[in-house]
Amino acid sequence: MDYQSIEFGLEQGIARITLNRPEKLNSFTAAMHGELADALSRIESQGARVLVLTGRGRGFCAGQDLSERQMSAGAAPIDLGHTVETYYAPLVRRLHALPMPVVVGVNGVAAGAGANLALAGDIVIARRSASFIQPFCRLGLLPDTGGTYALPRLVGRARAMGLALLGDKLSAEKAEQWGLIWECVDDDAFEARLDELARHFATAPTQGLAATKRAIDASLDHTLDQQLDMERDLMRELGRSADYAEGVAAFLAKRAPVFGGK
């Protein structure tokens, strides 16, 4: 597939997706969703060990391109539930299920579905000049793309309600302070930090990191006993991995480990 709305690359275990509609602040279209789905299929099948997701230009993603939602007089209402079920929900599910870290670099404004796309990442960093906005309330809607799931879990009910019901802009610095994202980075250091994280995860024990993702996500709905059982089962599996053997051997030999992601 020739991509028009995104840029995609995969090299040395690092998959990179850059949303590439800068003139529209990388807002979503059906075509962009199709390209993202294709790129994720390539990532799942081609041995990537980390995904880096960011945007081109001055915005990360401004959410849905509303020019695709214009209704002519007398036309039937657009089925937004179909849009969520067909595009946004599968995208969030696939990012959560990827057996590798998903690093999101928020290079500018992240609004609506774009903000919640960012929150679907595992490690989220943002330029200090970036911001997060949940503008759904201004359109008579609710935060989709996993927004109503992620927000209260990341920042608590009170802050989630304020963000969702008021739609105020949240700075990257405050997003870090609230625990919405991992790190706020000075603009001139942003690209280097994103590359540093990509290189780190490309040489890390990928299976262990994937299992960590699964366990932490599951813990939100598990009892303590269920979580302890899951930890037991995953540790049993990881204890048989080549990366664990390499980690132990490297520790005993007092050398840096060389993980193969297996």
Rank of each mutant, 00 (worst) to 15 (best):
Y3W: 07
S5H: 15
I6N: 01
E11Y: 02
I14K: 00
L19I: 02
E23M: 14
T29F: 13
A31V: 13
G34V: 07
L36A: 11
D38L: 04
I43K: 08
S45W: 05
Q46Y: 05
A48S: 12
L53K: 07
L53A: 09
R58G: 07
F60L: 05
R69D: 14
P77C: 13
I78W: 03
G81D: 13
Y88W: 15
L91I: 08
V92H: 15
V103S: 02
V106H: 02
N107S: 15
A113Q: 13
G114A: 09
N116A: 02
I123A: 08
R127T: 04
A130R: 01
F132R: 07
L142E: 11
T145L: 03
L154W: 10
R159N: 11
M161A: 14
G162M: 12
L163Y: 05
A164R: 04
E173H: 10
A175H: 03
A175P: 07
W178S: 03
W178K: 03
W178Y: 08
I181N: 00
V185D: 04
D187Q: 08
E191S: 14
L197N: 01
A204E: 01
P205K: 02
T206P: 00
Q207M: 08
A211D: 03
K213F: 05
H222N: 15
D225C: 05
Q226A: 11
M235F: 07
R236V: 00
G239H: 00
R240Q: 06
A242D: 02
A245V: 00
A245R: 14
V248M: 12
V248G: 05
A249L: 09
R255L: 06
A256Q: 15
A256R: 10
A256C: 10
